[in-house]
Design a protein around this nucleic acid. Structure first.
Length: 127
DNA sequence: ACAATGACGCCTC
DNA sequence: AGAGGCGCCATTG
């Protein structure tokens, strides 16, 4: 449906560049205390197969821009940084500070993920 | 120009 | 549940 990478002669902007901006918006829309997977972000931004590109997009965010990057995890409900890395710990701490609970290094996506967020909207389950 | 690299996901076994 | 294998695709070396 949407295959990017076509340069527009005038602007020099690629479809991928445009998609990157959508990614920022999607990520900024993730409510505090909830998470989305890379695949979900990619899909919501308009490229269903671009899960691996989401991290690139977030790294491209301008310096001043606040992006809740820590609210993006992989489809297994786990943090995608190596466990021994500082990034892993930073992300985990930020999430726990928002009330997200880890069990055996995993987040319950039915509770904190996309569907979980919908449930909260529908019948206001306590977090 | 070409091969390797990921903050991934899905399907199999 | 968990480990492999493979497809993905812009970027990097």
């Amino acid at each position: 449906m949407n295959l990017p990478t076509n340069k527009r002669p005038e602007t020099g902007v690629t479809d991928f560049d445009a998609w990157v901006k959508s990614v920022w918006q999607v990520v900024q829309g993730i409510p505090r205390g909830h998470v989305l997977t890379y695949g979900e972000v990619a899909r919501l931004a308009g490229m269903s197969r671009a899960a691996r590109r989401v991290s690139q997009a977030m790294r491209r965010a301008p310096r001043g821009m606040t992006l809740p990057w820590h609210r993006v995890v992989n489809a297994q409900g786990k943090i995608s940084f190596p466990e021994d890395s500082s990034g892993y710990l930073r992300q985990k701490n930020r999430l726990e500070q928002e009330g997200v609970v880890f069990m055996n290094g995993k987040i319950d996506l039915d509770r904190y993920g996309y569907r979980g967020a919908l449930d909260h909207l529908l019948w206001s389950e306590p977090l």
